[in-house]
Design a protein around this nucleic acid. Sequence first.
DNA 1: CTGAAAGCGCTAACAC
DNA 2: GTGTTAGCGCTTTCAG
Lengths: 333, 333
Amino acid sequence: MENQTITIYDVAREASVSMATVSRVVNGNPNVKPATRKKVLDVIDRLDYRPNAVARGLASKKTTTVGVIIPDVSNVYFSSLARGIDDVATMYKYNIILANSDGSDEKEVNVLNTLLAKQVDGIIFMGHHITDAIRGEFSRSKTPVVLAGSIDPDKQVGSVNIDYKEATAEAVSVLAANNHEKIAFISGSLLDPINGQERLAGYKQGLKDNKLSYNEGLVFETNFNYKTGYGLTDRLLNTGATAAYIADDELAVGVMNGLLDQGIKVPEDFEIITSNNTLITEMARPQLSSISQPLYDIGAVSMRLLTKLMNKEEVEEKTIILPHGLAKKGSTK
Amino acid sequence: MENQTITIYDVAREASVSMATVSRVVNGNPNVKPATRKKVLDVIDRLDYRPNAVARGLASKKTTTVGVIIPDVSNVYFSSLARGIDDVATMYKYNIILANSDGSDEKEVNVLNTLLAKQVDGIIFMGHHITDAIRGEFSRSKTPVVLAGSIDPDKQVGSVNIDYKEATAEAVSVLAANNHEKIAFISGSLLDPINGQERLAGYKQGLKDNKLSYNEGLVFETNFNYKTGYGLTDRLLNTGATAAYIADDELAVGVMNGLLDQGIKVPEDFEIITSNNTLITEMARPQLSSISQPLYDIGAVSMRLLTKLMNKEEVEEKTIILPHGLAKKGSTK
DNA sequence: CTGAAAGCGCTAACAC
DNA sequence: GTGTTAGCGCTTTCAG
């Protein structure tokens, strides 16, 4: 009972053609007479032959798989991007090797290296910041890279994002329009460009646009976690803030629930605008007003851009900015 | 400016040894004199040599990658499993090819085939039911398979789950203890064994244990979606139900919010127990009481089981049942 | 402890 | 249109 794997050679023999011909029909090469094509196809069917993608990869130097480096798949923000990435990948016949990095600089480098060792045709990177180590690896290898929902001030590689600065400024303006004087800014590490540069700049811009002054005491540098948000209540109230822009939905629900549990009414006593408009903004009560961004599309467009890069097509602009919006719901008046 | 990829052969030449020796040091084979090992390592470092995993895969017939078939990564239930899978995979030096199936029978088969073509060493399958087509592919290939959080009545392949029947019966008993006469059962397709067999059986068992009679009118077959749950309110109330067991968290929040928005108080007028105890049960107000299951662990244990199978180790029991619990929160009295 | 040599299964010129 | 022939980069006997 040998379970001999059947190869292209077996098919060639059975069909009395050369392996080159078999390869041609398998790859849809038109230079094959219909009759022989049919003959080969029949044998393939009879023998239940399946091309070995690994051998093909070695011979052609293309694996039709791309690496996706993600901080944490179980986080809705990232898994939404991942879904968009995979759908477009499938559309273009690519597969995805998904690797969690936990946002750890060290893991990111490790993971990137094993992905490269596996000869992926391209890489999609999601992360809060690009370390020099990662940047070095990126430029050292000629494998195309696209950042999805991640900012690299250097703009050396492709990227797809929304205009975080503008979106944040708008959110702050909405809050300011309701006569709040003290609007808090609650985000993750300010060392991450998306927070420390984009969003913070947008916050300052928003304040300025509404003749409000910037006060460092209203800036909260924390992490994107429900419990963290929930625990922030006292510190937040102590600043005298009556509204807040929050950079993450889970964090925002935490903050809101913390306020509610202390008897603070949202939006009557405190207004909140969050950033990702994920499903949880709808599940929360009151529903959370939010910047809306096309998460699925950011992933999808990233992958589409990557296919072009892998295909060495001309790309007019590899720093893509997608449109955003503002969904007013129950946490603003 | 040739960017010639540097191969094991280059290293061998530079280090004045054979490629066999280089291969040995790269693979940690102990049969190498320390001195030569060092010499080789130095050259590897100097040349910045990186083994080509594809070539290695072809020669060794092992790719150190496993395929993961998932209905939808952007669903927290599945992405939590995926996280457990990836962590253990990384621990054992495997990578994950992640493929979304949308729960479509056809896509599942396609995806399975491309995964097999890519010579994955093993497969983790998540899905609501196992079609004959899939079962056929599973038995045809000798690639080991493990089901994660998915039931196959046939038990031909490995699987990791909790005891859904028992857990559901317990949930129903908790509800019954609060003197509800009409307890609804709200789940997904009853054609899926996990719902139609396990959970429904548990529901009936729970009713029986509490001397309540089964009434088909209280069984809701729907899908796991927030909006669907939200839209269920009228039909649900019309049955006269005053409590419900719900098979999915998003669905449960939908149902609850629908009730709340019609002025029904939870848990005073209506009690709810949901099934997955994901983070959203905590974010909801009131918080949702839930069966608790170790999602991350189900993924992790699945992957661990798969490593054993791939390694041809003896496995005492390949149908693994993990413990569950019941977390009482705000949606029950 | 080390080297030689034969593949792994397929693609890609290059002839005919 | 179709066949021949080299490899792709590495692992793995088998000698020695």
